[in-house]
Design a protein around this nucleic acid. Structure first.
Lengths: 348, 348
DNA sequence: TTGCAAATTTGGAACGTTCCAATTATCAAG
DNA sequence: CTTGATAATTGGAACGTTCCAAATTTGCAA
């Protein structure tokens, strides 16, 4: 015994029924008599049967493999890890399993990984694309009819569903908050002008500046690398103009930290002498000094919604490409010197 | 066209050869003529062929599915995310793909996930077990002959390979460091007493206390949840005794952060008035204030080694259960007020 | 009993690959 | 122009499931 794996035929023999009946039991069909069902189940347990999904898949025309692929650009980054966990939650409870891979921001690796997943017959893909992903990278998988949901960043020309945070609204709220604290000259710092995310956020800034009737001045908009170093550079340039800003909303939290560095280097204490708002609410935002006021985007929730959308598309055969914007919320901490202001302070 | 998926037979027809030949090409066999090989490859590209690993697997006796399963107790925790990334690196470059799932510390979910992976025919499993995992949970998969490597925590009675960090040695070094700074009453804070990891670390603490001839007092050992909240609670209890400690080594970094919170709440400044050492070296340890002195365990390296071990066992058919202890290193930062001490400071 | 519908069960024929044994093409030497 | 050997190719027969159409059993009224 124990020579080969136990198959549905072994079960059938041992239970004195046909393989078809066993298959029916496996699928929980209502066509099978209660007595035989229990009998078959007992035998399966006894022989230590394990279902061979590969074989099943082969027969069923592919689409229902119960595997969904998740490809993430940087799992090391808490943001994306949370995203993956969110996806896993809903995917798992829908009886699917998750194929998760990390691309480390390499489009090449991303291509390989996606190809490999395709070979394994995934029935859907959630992708948080590596920087530099082109629409052509997604072409083959989209063409094959496998539902794809792109999360967080979107891929310019690709005809796929996507879910991203509400960049416009987030920055709008940030500016509004700063205005409510009395600021009139507010800078927008960091980020590359040629990215979609930058433009959405900038648009939010412009809209808020207009809506709040505070000073409008293109010198207050300083682009720079979306990194800590970029932040330091940006604040330097922003403070070199004659009519200086007193507050800034930053492209993301990394930039915000860089801005803090840059301010301190000039003897200006962030949070007390200058107000700063970030974007993303990365883990360090909470523990940094001063704790960073920022726009929180709930990556896990985003993951869950991405998964739900994907599952919907899978079961629907194939729906239209759909775009979800995930709402964000302002988390007030200490970097605006705003301790104690009457604006929904962070709970706990 | 585009009716069903493109199969090896379609390729064969289009290229004017037999399916067997196409299969040979697929496997890179040297038996096939160079001209036909290029021809076949060209046709494959043209028709957009994608390999069906499921079908291949079915024929090949199972063991070489090119999938390895990775099950992690908490992907949200940077430590385990890094571990998974480490695994992914070597697994991917060996041409395997990774099935990654998160159990959120639930043994039930863990069981389900492992069962599901088995159905998908994984050829090996790396498991960072959920709290409360029993040897019996691993019984079936081990019995089926699938190589399993348990990482980080080990499962008591299970006959599997494992890789864990050198807990004893790490805490020993931490205590030694504190002693070298002049501390005589050093607490050991946090962690659940009924876990193997706790006991290994505690053992390191005891050994160091004995070796350094500093005060030995069981009141200095305070167990608590291995979390930030647990740390705050533990330091509270540790400071309620008459002869108070002046330093603490903590079960892990989360506890250490909680200890900082607890100290500040009492007006004691961590790093200046009280020395703290953590364990794990999570990402925030570097950026926290004060930056945390801790025991670094290189989770990514551990993941890589775990994967290497697993791959070795997979190709070896099945080797003996092997145990690796992964060495650790003390990273001195600011939480011991030790800036400038002559103990190998963190580089860069 | 008989008949008939509903409830169960059942043999194949797929699914897309790999492997084996066997066939055919190629070519150098006799 | 055989012969043999070597190189290259090729038809099935698996692999473990699902699905279909058909067969069998059952229940029950006539």
């Amino acid at each position: 015994m124990t020579k080969g794996r136990v198959t549905v035929i072994d079960i059938a023999k041992a239970a004195g029924v046909s393989k078809s009946t066993v298959s029916l039991v496996l699928q929980g069909s209502s066509l099978v008599n209660e007595a035989t069902r229990t009998k078959v189940n007992a035998v399966m347990r006894e022989l230590g049967y394990v279902y061979n999904r590969g074989a099943a898949n082969l027969r069923q025309s592919g689409s229902k493999s119960k595997i969904i692929g998740v490809v993430v650009n940087d799992l090391t980054n808490g943001f994306f890890a949370e995203l993956a966990v969110g996806v896993d939650m809903v995917v798992q409870s829908a009886g699917f399993v998750q194929f998760l891979s990390n691309t480390s921001e390499s489009p090449d690796r991303q291509r390989e990984v996606i190809a490999s997943m395709r070979e394994h017959g995934i029935s859907g893909l959630i992708l948080s694309p590596a920087r530099g992903t082109e629409a052509s990278d997604l072409k083959p998988i989209v063409a094959s009819g496998i539902p794809v949901v792109v999360a967080v960043r979107n891929v310019p020309g690709a005809k796929v569903s996507s879910i991203a945070s509400d960049n416009r609204e987030g920055v709008f709220a940030a500016v509004q908050h700063l205005v409510s604290l009395g600021h009139r000259r507010i800078a927008f710092l960091g980020g590359f002008r040629d990215t979609a995310v930058f433009n959405e956020r900038l648009e939010g800034y412009r809209a808020a500046v207009a809506a709040c009737r505070v000073e409008q001045d293109d010198d207050l908009i300083v682009d720079a690398a979306p990194s800590r170093a970029g932040g330091a550079e940006a604040i330097g340039r922003a403070l070199s103009i004659s009519n200086k800003p007193t507050a800034a909303v930053c492209f993301n939290d990394a930039v915000a930290f860089g801005v803090c560095d840059g301010l301190r280097a000039k003897g200006i204490e962030p949070g007390r002498d200058f107000s700063i708002v970030g974007f993303d609410d990365v883990i360090e935002a909470r523990t940094a000094v001063p704790a960073l006021t920022t726009i929180s985007v709930d990556p896990q929730g985003m993951g869950r919604r991405a998964a739900q959308l994907l599952l919907k598309q899978i079961s629907a055969g194939k729906a239209e490409a759909e775009t979800i914007v995930s709402s964000v919320r302002l988390v007030v901490r200490d970097s605006c010197g705003a301790s104690g202001v009457p604006v929904g302070r962070e709970q706990a």
